[in-house]
Amino acid sequence: MAGKRPALPLVLSASDLLDGDVVFHTGAGWDRSLSAALVATDEAGAQRLEAALAEVESGGPVAEPFLFTVTLDPSGAAVPNHYRERIRVCGPTVRHDFGPQAREELSHVSL
């Protein structure tokens, strides 16, 4: 992994190799829903995500894995801290009919 680890809590994301869809690491595999993501809140969790990242860094069923920082909202749902990741988990802000925002509830994430 290049560079230093972002701040906790962390989510590991990547793109599905064959479809290109945004996916998140669940602890056991990869899922298209942010709500299914394993959120690492401590050192042990972060190491687990880093190990999962290392495993797919040069190959595997996903491409371009990376970690990003989230905040847990009052309901415990993860919200990305940076606007880039907020756009990435929702879809284009100029086409609300495309991307994850079109197929699932992401009302807790907004720019």
Binding site: S15, G20, D21, A63, I87, R88, G91, F98
Partner: peptide, 17 residues
């Protein structure tokens, strides 16, 4: 693969290829 697919015009972008 990334470099080779790019030479065929295929990128991996923010939401999709």
């Amino acid at each position: 693969f990334t470099l080779l697919r790019q030479m065929n015009g295929l990128y991996l972008q923010l939401h999709a290829y």
